[in-house]
Design a protein around this nucleic acid. Sequence first.
DNA 1: AACATTTAAGACTTATGATTCCTAAATATA
DNA 2: TATATTTAGGAATCATAAGTCTTAAATGTT
Lengths: 142, 142
Amino acid sequence: MLLAKSTENAIQLIIYLIRHADNDYIRVKEIAEQCNISFFILSKIAQKMIKAGILESYTGPNGGIKLVKNPSDIQLIDVVQSIEGTDVLDKCILGFEHCGEMNPCAVHQHWKEAREVILNMFEGKTLKEIIDIDELKEVYSV
Amino acid sequence: MLLAKSTENAIQLIIYLIRHADNDYIRVKEIAEQCNISFFILSKIAQKMIKAGILESYTGPNGGIKLVKNPSDIQLIDVVQSIEGTDVLDKCILGFEHCGEMNPCAVHQHWKEAREVILNMFEGKTLKEIIDIDELKEVYSV
DNA sequence: AACATTTAAGACTTATGATTCCTAAATATA
DNA sequence: TATATTTAGGAATCATAAGTCTTAAATGTT
Ligand code: SF4
Ligand code: SF4
């Protein structure tokens, strides 16, 4: 499993937020219902992203959560790291101790290539680009 | 984390086996010591790979485990699947229910590309190729 | 001020994987 | 046959992640 389940949920939450953003706060309960995720789980996840500076919240009636920055100023990696910590993809595919470029294990170069692509997926695109529905329509002609 | 820790250990075990293969059975204890992995853990992992038909074992003095097939006839994906099950990379990066090519979620195409590369790493190369030290020397000029 | 709504935060339980331990079975060797 | 070696396999423990619940704090509405 590449991503933890809570990170999957975090991405779903973000996608929902972007698609329903209209400068108002959106209730976590609404997102939980629409995305079919437990409210309790989602509110914990939201809290992590708030601490990471991705979301802000407002307590009370008409309250909820919303994005702090513009979707085009957030990378997917920011979301991933806000949940899983900053060293998700620093880790290697094997557990060898004294390794790396100078003393590579047998799969080093292969894993390096794959990680490059994964990183590119997480860093190369902003949330705006990733979530852009028109782009998807073009590709899949839906 | 892409791979479970036990899968990391499985790959380490396989690498050791290939590099020390001389048609004899190799004791799990020896591998455990050399790879610095708990013997108990490694013997469980070995049992899984035996059930998957990758290794065979022999009980008693001079016993141990060895590869069933030639390293050039085994794909890395076989090792991974023997430990984690066959649907490791079938799963999607998100948890959406009704999705896929016809109804792609917002990151479908990006994850598809990355998964392609990972699969290629696991399926495209045989263990022989991956473990080949000369190939590594060439690339890293070690 | 009283009440309803909504996030905040911690406690608690459950599920899953990692790790360790122990006994049995197989088999070579003396 | 007795003994030492080595895998087989289950039981038990520990760690971490996932999921649930409960109470507190903030704040708009009446
Ligand atoms: S040599 Fe490279 S692939 Fe191998 S364990 Fe080290 S960092 Fe990972
Ligand atoms: S649409 Fe594609 S990327 Fe999205 S959840 Fe489904 S299979 Fe995964």
